[in-house]
Design a protein around this nucleic acid. Structure first.
Length: 383
DNA sequence: AAGGCGGGGTG
DNA sequence: CACCCAGCCTT
């Protein structure tokens, strides 16, 4: 039977799935898993489908009340299909991701109009319905009809990343493809597996991820017996539970820019004490000027720097003397330095601004990039 | 391949 | 506060 799974090097992972992986999860679920959630202990595809949609990106605890209220108001797919959109949205209000509710309504109508009011049991058909993707289709098919088909939700991704030691953000295409391949391989064996086994297996993976293999404190660290997969778990063996699964890459940090002024007289440079709050709080830095022109206009900046420097002496000229980028945790700061040389200087300046000799740079707390800036100036002989 | 959608819980 | 949650859809 032709299979279109991507030609990714899945061989290592696939061969790493223990033969009894699936049935161990099944046995664990029956003894230790969750059995009393409102959408369990039924094969009613309507309730199962509704719960799966509500549980997309939403935690169990948040869903329970919404689910009860929803099925009380609209107990069947036919009732939902006939309900006004306003009622559907009202029942959903507060759950978030409201396209789920709109798709839910559309899906109910499609089930009534195109499938005789009966939910399909084939995941390949389910996935064609609005709001039902690959994992949700599989969950509905497994829970409502015992179909042997894999799910891959957030819980499963976390469990797999740890058990099989998969590095890389699971939201990334290549990683997700590998995990789907693993999910296929990890299923309990095709021959002997019964419908009820698939219910327990599918629920078991979710339960493991939600209750044992949690994000913050996986219980296996305190008690290896808590997880049926701990004997095979790469992350537990190698102490990687804190770094697997690989977190989502942080968004590119924004870049800000500032213009600093190097006001020089002899070997002295003007420095300014920064406020206690904010970056470099309490450090002596170079004075900054606001240059709002976009794109950056050196002449404007030079004029502004000259005007500022006049307060401290007789300024001869100003010019762009250097640029550097400093990286903080939350942003990159592009620093442009305008240099102003003074013929004469006012000796006494009060408050938070003072002269600093280049020879005394060590005596004051100075931000690293400012220090670099000044050292660069000195290195090329400008002091 | 990446971004949008949302309210809520957790460390 | 950062990160994530029984993901899916659109661009």
């Amino acid at each position: 039977m032709p299979r279109k799974s991507a030609a990714v090097p899945v061989v290592n992972e696939v061969s790493a799935v223990p033969a009894d992986f699936g049935m161990r999860v099944v046995a664990w679920q029956r003894q230790h898993g969750r059995h009393d959630l409102p959408w369990q202990n039924t094969r009613d595809p309507y309730r199962i489908w509704l719960s799966e949609i509500m549980l997309q990106q939403t935690q169990v605890a948040a869903v329970i009340e919404y689910f009860q209220r929803f099925v009380t108001a609209l107990p069947t797919v036919a009732a939902l299909a006939q309900a006004p959109a306003d009622q559907v949205m009202a029942l959903w209000a507060g759950l978030g991701y409201y396209s789920r509710a709109r798709n839910l309504h559309r899906c109910a109508k499609a089930v009534v109009d195109d499938h005789g009011g009966v939910f399909p049991a084939d995941p390949a058909v389910l996935v064609t319905l609005p709001g039902i993707g690959r994992s949700t289709a599989a969950a509905i098919a497994a829970f409502s009809a015992g179909v042997r088909t894999p799910i891959l939700d957030g819980n499963v991704k976390r469990v797999f990343a740890r058990v099989f030691g998969i590095h890389g953000y699971p939201g990334e295409r290549a990683i997700e493809t590998r995990m789907w391949a693993l999910a296929e391989q990890a299923l309990p064996p095709a021959g002997p597996t019964q419908a009820e086994d698939m219910v327990a297996y599918t629920q078991g993976l979710m339960d493991l991820g939600a209750t044992i293999c949690s994000r913050g404190k996986p219980q296996c660290l305190a008690d290896p017996d808590a997880c049926p997969l701990s004997p095979d778990c790469v992350a537990r063996r190698d102490g990687l539970t804190a770094v697997l699964p690989t977190p989502k890459p942080r968004a590119a940090i924004p870049e800000r820019s500032t213009v600093m002024v190097i006001v020089r007289h002899d070997r002295n440079v003007l420095v300014q004490l920064r406020p206690d709050s904010g970056i470099w709080g309490g450090l002596w830095s170079l004075p900054e000027i606001a240059v709002n022109a976009v794109p950056f206009d050196p002449e404007l900046a030079e004029d502004a720097a000259l005007a500022m420097a006049q307060r401290f002496g007789n300024a001869a000229r100003a010019y762009l003397a250097g640029e550097l980028t400093h990286v903080f945790t939350h942003f990159r700061l592009l620093i442009r330095a305008i240099r102003v040389d003074l013929d004469s200087a006012s000796p006494h300046i009060g408050g938070d601004i003072r002269w600093l000799s280049l020879d005394d740079l060590d005596a004051l707390g100075t931000p690293a990039p400012v220090r670099r800036l000044l050292e660069d100036q000195a290195r090329i002989g400008l002091f």
